Simulated scan of single mutants.
Amino acid sequence: MNELKVTSMEELKNQSTEIIELSPFVGDKPICVRTKRPSILGLCQDGSIPNQLLGVARKLFYQEDIQKVDLKEHGQIIDIICKNTLVEPSIEQLKETNLKLTDEQKFELWAYSQQGIEGLKSFRKVTKSTVDNSNGKDLQNKTKPNFKHKK
Rank of each mutant, 00 (worst) to 15 (best):
L109Y: 12
V56R: 00
I49E: 15
C82A: 12
S90K: 05
A111C: 02
L109W: 13
R58S: 10
D132N: 13
N135Y: 07
G119W: 04
T130W: 02
S134V: 00
Q115L: 11
V69G: 06
T97V: 14
K125H: 02
L54E: 09
G47L: 11
G136V: 09
G136A: 01
I78S: 01
K125F: 04
Q76E: 14
K59E: 11
A111D: 15
D79M: 07
R58M: 07
K106R: 11
L71E: 09
Q93S: 06
K128Y: 15
L120S: 03
K128S: 13
N135R: 10
A111T: 01
L120G: 03
K72G: 10
V87E: 06
K100M: 13
K68I: 02
S134E: 12
R124V: 03
F123P: 04
V56W: 00
K83G: 08
F107M: 13
D132P: 02
Q52L: 06
G119N: 02
L101H: 01
Y62N: 08
E108V: 09
G75S: 15
Q115Y: 09
Y112H: 04
K128A: 09
C82P: 03
I80Q: 08
T97Y: 04
I66D: 11
G119A: 02
V56N: 06
P89L: 04
S134Q: 08
C82K: 01
Q105C: 07
F61H: 00
N51K: 08
F123Q: 00
T130R: 05
S134F: 15
S122F: 11
K125T: 02
I66K: 02
Q67R: 09
R124D: 03
L71Y: 08
I117Q: 07
Y62G: 03
Q67C: 09
I66C: 12
W110C: 01
P89K: 08
K95S: 10
G136F: 10
E118M: 12
W110A: 03
P50C: 05
L120M: 05
D70T: 05
L54Q: 08
T85D: 05
E104K: 00
K83P: 00
N133W: 14
K59C: 13
G55H: 04
L94H: 01
L120Y: 02
W110H: 06
P50R: 03
D70Q: 06
R58V: 07
F61A: 01
N133V: 05
D65G: 05
E64F: 03
F61C: 02
E108L: 03
S90Y: 06
E88S: 15
R58I: 10
E88I: 09
N84C: 03
I77H: 10
I117P: 08
D132A: 13
H74C: 11
L53V: 02
E88R: 15
I117T: 09
Q67E: 15
Q115C: 09
N133L: 09
K59T: 14
S113W: 07
N51S: 12
I91W: 08
G47K: 06
D70N: 15
K59I: 11
N135A: 08
Q93F: 06
D65Y: 01
I80S: 05
H74G: 05
F123I: 00
